[in-house]
Design a protein around this nucleic acid. Structure first.
Lengths: 330, 330
DNA sequence: CTGAAAGCGCTAACAC
DNA sequence: GTGTTAGCGCTTTCAG
């Protein structure tokens, strides 16, 4: 493994000038620049990034925290972020927390140990109070998630409103016994509770009462959806519509309904969230709320890179992206 | 940001001993160990990983190359690898090549610049000749992909055989005009060509001829599947069955067929690859070849970590995992 | 068991 | 424009 010293020796030029060539400094004699480049090529020299990092304390690496990469919502987000990051010369460390608070803190420590320049939270497990101290070590940007305990930048949709609209759609269709699936109750996040509030507000605005039995907690994936349906099946008083927090859950419900006499959408309407590929392909087509996933990921990463590049953060900058209700068969 | 020097000063103990405490060396006086730990805590000290890397030339980081994270096959693979890596204290850098040779080489350079300890190829774009030289900088392990140009470890299925079996299934059902979708033609990879060979061998063994028109190249995602169907629709002599390289492509074909008079599976049978969630949910259910994605990812990462930990590689070790034909409606 | 000291490879003043 | 030099923060001989 050759070092800058070897290049200097071979080319007969000092280390500092070699370094200048590496970093494209101006004011380097053209002839020497060529000699240095030739030596670098001959030795197959590449700068050692650990040394550069130690010296410059920049890693050109960003940690992206998500709960499950296999969820198309998150892989879409990561994909969008990756495009922007790559373009700007940054790498991404994949931080798949699997919903674990401990793992989230472990990843957050990458910031303290200078292994990453910044952290993007696309899912959030811990209370903000526990995360806040890490702001001292580098920028943190939120994507999708948010909390009223802080005003750091967040790129997301208005979950209250989206939820209100979905519920309203049910009501307009004459549904009166409307249920709700929500995800885990993360203390530090307002996402789930805002969705619940929007849902309840819509019911309240139309004089509908809510049966607590129709609130399904911790429903986040396909199998959870199947279990939700099984529970519904066993109920004496069943909901006639369910607003789910994700297309995966909704798909699980629809899939499981096929083994039963309860018909979707005649007996049970379903609305999903995200507008994933599957929503368009399943029969009946899944009515769902489309999130601008790509835009959300791109804007988040652009902002992070802006902070990292210009050292200035737009504190309190919250970008609210538009959602759209996609009406299909369910 | 406090350093080892600060800890040494505060505790009144030398840097070397502090370092020993950090690294859990034996032979450190218990009382001193406690004093050091107290000082570390008081200062909120964390070792700077760039310095550790520079000194020790270990990064505890592995690069995973895939072509598209939004493909459920790859996100499943990454998820499995991540579990194993995290468990062993390694991080993953996500290398989404998007099918670009250049980007693949850029990522491969992480190995040269000592930013990662090893590289896993779960997709491969360049010719092996161009990748080979990088073996000098660290271990490379293949997952899913392979090439006969090298015998480095590979964890994968037998694509020839899987393809043969799928084609045989069509033949047993009385199909005679069988088409094939394959992905990009990567020079360095045998995957696509082996699938094609298995397919052709099955036809040949049953005295069926192959119409070149029914070979669809560069079909890798949902939209490609839709285009394939559109092409089929315009043909005067249509295939009565298509073996696709992925469930995504198959889903695209089925989805597009709904706007046409060609009925799946009556007029056109389809077999997918991977057995993704969607195969079970779509109607009609998609017949497909199940790959042991999780096991493949886990074994690959276990092997990589084994190499990194024990400095020994099982050259020529190819693990062939079992596939299973899942028969559904198409 | 512990401390002093020598670097790992690189960059950035600083002087020429 | 260019070379000399002093570290960045850490680990690891090598003596004690």
């Amino acid at each position: 493994m050759s070092t800058i010293k070897d290049v200097a020796k071979l080319s007969g030029i000092s280390r500092s000038t070699v370094s200048r060539v590496i970093n494209n400094h101006p004011y380097v004699n053209e002839e020497k620049r060529i000699r240095v480049k030739a030596a670098m090529k001959e030795l197959g020299y590449v700068p050692n990034s650990s040394a550069q990092r130690l010296r410059g304390s920049k890693t050109k690496t960003i940690a992206v925290l998500i709960s499950r990469i296999v969820n198309p919502f998150f892989s879409g987000l990561v994909d969008a972020m990756d495009s922007v990051a790559t373009e700007a010369g940054f790498q991404l460390i994949l931080c798949n927390t699997r919903g674990s608070k401990e793992r989230e803190m472990t990843y957050l420590n990458l910031l303290r140990t200078k292994q990453v320049d910044g952290v993007v939270f696309a899912s959030i497990e811990n209370n903000w109070d526990d995360i806040k101290p890490y702001l001292a070590y580098g920028p943190i940007v939120l994507c999708n998630e948010y909390t009223d305990q802080t005003d750091i930048p967040s790129f997301r949709i208005n979950h209250f409103q989206a939820s209100y609209e979905a519920t309203l759609h049910f009501i307009k269709q004459g549904k009166t016994r409307i249920g709700l699936c929500r995800g885990d109750e993360t203390i530090g996040s307002n996402l789930g509770s805002d969705r619940e509030k929007g849902f309840l507000k819509a019911l309240q605005d139309h004089q509908l009462t809510f049966n607590e039995q129709w609130l399904f907690r911790n429903a986040t994936n396909f199998n959870d959806g199947r279990h939700v349906f099984q529970k519904v099946e066993r109920m004496s008083e069943r909901p006639d519509a369910i607003f789910t927090g994700s297309d995966e859950v909704a798909t699980g419900i629809i899939s499981e309904s096929r083994n039963s006499s309860i018909h979707v959408p005649n007996d049970l309407s379903v609305i999903g969230f995200d507008d994933q590929q599957i929503a368009d392909v399943i029969t009946p087509g899944l009515t769902t709320i489309r999130q601008p996933i790509q835009k959300m990921g791109e804007q988040t990463m652009q902002h992070m890179i802006h902070i990292l590049t210009n050292q200035t953060s737009l504190i309190g900058h919250t970008e609210l992206l538009k959602t759209e209700l996609i009406v299909r068969g369910t």
